[in-house]
Amino acid sequence: MWTWTGVLFRRIGTLLLTALLGGILGATLVRFAPGFGVDERELDTRLHEDSIQALRRSHSEERNVLQFYASYLAGAARGHLGVSHSFGRPVTQLFAERLPVTLRTVALGLAGGWMLGLLLALPVVRLRGWSFDFFASSTSGVFLCLPTAVVAILFLYFRGPVALAICVVVFPRVFRYARNILVQTYALPHVLTASAKGLSTLRILLWHIFPVAAPQILALSGVTVSIALGAAIPIEVICDSPGIGQLAWQAALSRDLPVLVNMTLFVTLVTLTANSAADLATKAFETRPV
């Protein structure tokens, strides 16, 4: 027996612990990456020797990862997420400027990807003709084979919206999975009986297909959030979209520890929240009296 409150608390606890561990893992990886603690400004021939030494010292407090992480968490508790080395600005400010851009494009891309994926999957099971199945499967197959960077380059050339590029990355995954689930569900005896009795398509879909397929489809929704967020990084970089994907890339190139730690925490939290929400929804469906 489980209670909603207990599950919720356990989930939140796991989520926070995983995020904290993810943060320290990210910080450790960056700290030990080659080129950590060096600043290309050191090569500026105009700089006085004292300024070069000051630049070198500015990274010294980040050399001890545990110490850095402890002071970062203490700062985060007070709302200070640190200052970016490469941008010279508070991370809170950078996130506030760029997060809305990414959230908007990822949300639109996800919505589009799901809509397109389901719109292609439903007729496949409904029409049961090989031609549409072939068309939909091959189309999604082509897009599935395209690396995200190639999709981004195509959208860059044709100046397509970034959200649509994310949609193009998400939809083939949704289609493949949704198609298989729906085909299996449509073959269930109670669905065949309902169909034989002449029930309308909508009624069959809402009353007989959806309750059975929903848990698996909801589980997929959590995964697509991480797919979309992951795709946002190369797409934003290539298409010059000023979101957190572009920020993450620039921070990685300059070993900007404060930005990268926050980015790791953010991505971990979003991914885990999406997956947990999907899991809880699945559980709710599974335990729902039918």
Binding site: P34, G35, F36, V38, E40, L253, R255
Partner: peptide
């Protein structure tokens, strides 16, 4: 070929390189 921070680390900190090609 190395990314820029790694390259700077090699030429200014560890000196673990033999020949470097860069621009001024």
């Amino acid at each position: 070929t190395l990314d820029f921070p790694s390259l700077i680390e090699r030429i200014s900190r560890t000196f673990d390189y033999e020949l470097c090609l860069l621009g001024l």
